[in-house]
Design a protein around this nucleic acid. Sequence first.
DNA 1: GTCTATACTTCGATAGAC
DNA 2: GTCTATCGAAGTATAGAC
Lengths: 205, 205
Amino acid sequence: MPDSSKSAGLPRAESQSSTSSRLLLAAAELFWEKGFSGASTRELSERLGIQKASLYYHIRSKDDLLYEISIRSLDDIQQAVVTALANAPIEGRLQALVHAHLRTALEERHMHATQLTELRSMSEERRSAVLARRDAYERTVIETIRAEQAAGRLRMDLDARYLGLGLLNLLNWTIFWYRPEGPKAIEELADFFCDLYINGAAADR
Amino acid sequence: MPDSSKSAGLPRAESQSSTSSRLLLAAAELFWEKGFSGASTRELSERLGIQKASLYYHIRSKDDLLYEISIRSLDDIQQAVVTALANAPIEGRLQALVHAHLRTALEERHMHATQLTELRSMSEERRSAVLARRDAYERTVIETIRAEQAAGRLRMDLDARYLGLGLLNLLNWTIFWYRPEGPKAIEELADFFCDLYINGAAADR
DNA sequence: GTCTATACTTCGATAGAC
DNA sequence: GTCTATCGAAGTATAGAC
């Protein structure tokens, strides 16, 4: 990886617009539009304005791109949520999680959608590495819910694991229909999901 | 389509185990495992135990398979839900919808997952046809919710459209982690989602 | 309804010059 | 860091016999 800026966990500011800094995002967008197998390196290079062969100065293979997108997607969301949880008031942790998850996932929707749907296109070895990170994040969510139950803020009669999976259902599928140009802003949508998840849809009786 | 049993809306009983009756399900399973573009007609034919070329006696193209899977998936779920709504007691319509949706989607999970993720792999024309059916089903869901609001059983302060999208989030994503061998039966899971969606996760105050 | 054989296309990746 | 040129593999689909 001959990249001077290296991916040393630094915030990806300084959008140098260099080929290598645009590469991951362009690939994620293409994989999202065509699926990993349906996307060709030819089209990717066209979008970057370089020749097909020039791609291989930056990457070793198409597979590597998918792996890096998946890892980065999960690292970003894990980091955003952990930070949000640490900074949230004790009684607002669930809301902080929902906002951080949705904001990160929707702002990087092409990477997240790719990570969520293209596990199948990875080698066994890499799939395991991605799954390990996914499981770690799932545990973060479930443990947050368990703590809210223990604090008396969430129902104890429902299994924390399924409460967590239900919350992830609510959040993850949104990537597939959310449009940034649409009527609802991200924070507004996050508030809506918090309200629905916590208070339910039933009219007061 | 030289198929004597034709797909005349009949219940797909009589599993003759003929090649043509196994074809759609085998294709859906393969598309789900590899993605549409990642799946080869070679592997499909191997799974069916015939030669690659023999496929083309039953289908005109690989694209046709995807289209038929998508249409059938949506027709099945629409029909199951409309029937369930018609037979449900007036105050149990939402529960009937959730059960019918989840049961159909999970029982035919390969077809539904393919329909949900492979819209992008279709021609413009066919994508429109599938989207029209998807929109029609979405309207069925939203109208059911609107009726529940009017009857005073669901909150009026939340937009019926987003309540519908939220419910579909909850149900659709389940396809991606549900395992038939797992601990929770389909009906049990449906009851859980009904409870969570209607009553919310908050502890009683 | 299935076979063998093959035509045609597209793809991922490499070699080597600049 | 990007280019031109090309290789070899794999994919979809067709032709025509049985």
